[in-house]
Every structure is written in structure tokens, then in C-alpha cells.
Amino acid sequence: MLLDFKPSSLIVGLCFILASMPILADKIHDPTLPKINLNLPDNGAMPATSNENLSLQGIVNKKGTKMAIMSGQLHQLGDVVNGFKISQINNNNIVLLKSGSQKRLYVYEK
């Protein structure tokens, strides 16, 4: 039985296995990827957050422009979030304006 083995079938089998490897690798999760999308749309519009309670999760400096991660979304200076306009983005906080009042959010403030 072992003498009936054909080397060409081994080569075909190996080619099939090697060809399917990239398909399996695409399904592996990269733990270093951020949980949010850092790419801005071409028109500069940002999606609004649905939560009334805003939380500042981080500050990102991308290409010399500071952006704020608020409630899982990336926002830049001048964006309006739940009626608040982002007027300043500092190293560890942002300043929001609404109807003449000012609100300051700090990174991971409780």
C-alpha cells in the first residue's frame, strides 16, 4: 500500500494547504489595534455620540492636530457633541461651550 503512494498527490496536497494559510491568518485578531477608528472622513464631519453623559477617554495628537476621544468617538476642535462645542483641546482636558457656559472634561474623570 505504501508503494502505491504518488509524490504528485503529496505536492498537490501541500499546495492546497499552503494556499489556504493566508485565509486563516486573516481571522486572527491583532491585540495592538486601537478599538476606535482614527481615520477622519474627508468632509471633516464627525458622528455624534448618543450618550448624554460625556466622558473624555483620551487625547490624540495626529499630524500636529490634537483630537479628543469622547465616549468612544474621535473629535477635533470645533466639533459639536451633544450640543457642546469643543473650544479647547489640552494635554489632559478639553473645554466645552454651550449657551455661554463652559464645561471642562478631564481624561477619565469620574
Rank of each mutant, 00 (worst) to 15 (best):
L24D: 04
Q73D: 04
A68E: 01
L56F: 04
H75R: 03
L3A: 14
H29I: 11
S55H: 07
D30E: 07
N51L: 10
I28M: 13
S20M: 15
P47A: 03
M21N: 05
L38I: 12
L77G: 00
F5Y: 12
A68C: 07
G64H: 06
D4I: 05
V107Q: 09
S99T: 15
I17G: 15
L3V: 03
I86V: 12
Y106E: 10
N51H: 13
D30G: 02
K35F: 09
N39G: 03
L97R: 13
G72I: 09
L18I: 13
A48V: 10
M46N: 06
S50F: 03
L33P: 01
I17Q: 12
L18C: 11
K85R: 05
V12W: 14
L77F: 09
Q88T: 06
M1C: 02
Q76G: 11
M67H: 04
N53S: 05
L3H: 11
V95S: 14
L40T: 00
I17P: 06
L14W: 13
V12P: 00
D42P: 02
K103D: 04
L14P: 00
G44M: 09
N43A: 02
G13N: 11
K35A: 08
N82I: 01
H75L: 03
Q76A: 07
V80E: 08
H29W: 11
L56C: 01
P47V: 00
S8G: 01
T65L: 04
E109S: 07
D42M: 10
N39L: 13
L40D: 03
G44C: 03
I89Y: 11
M21Y: 15
D26G: 04
S20Y: 15
I11G: 00
L38M: 10
E52I: 01
V95F: 07
I94Y: 01
I23A: 15
L96S: 01
M70S: 05
G13P: 03
L24C: 11
T65G: 01
M46H: 11
D4M: 14
L33C: 02
G13R: 10
L105F: 02
N93W: 10
K63Q: 09
A25C: 08
Y106K: 14
L96V: 03
G64I: 00
C15I: 12
A48I: 07
A68G: 08
L54G: 03
A48T: 08
G72E: 08
K6Q: 13
D79Y: 01
V60Q: 15
T49C: 04
Q76K: 12
T65Y: 05
H75C: 02
N90H: 10
S55A: 13
M70H: 06
S101T: 14
L77I: 04
F16K: 14
P31H: 07
Q73E: 12
D42K: 15
M1V: 02
Q57D: 06
V107H: 10
Q88I: 03
L96A: 01
A45D: 04
L3E: 13
N92R: 08
G78I: 00
P34N: 04
D42Y: 09
P22A: 13
V107A: 08
G13M: 10
G44V: 02
P41E: 02
N91V: 12
R104W: 06
P41W: 04
Q102K: 15
T49L: 05
T65Q: 09
P22Y: 15
L3Q: 12
L3I: 03
P41Q: 06
V60A: 15
L18Q: 06
S50K: 07
M21C: 12
L2G: 14
P7A: 09
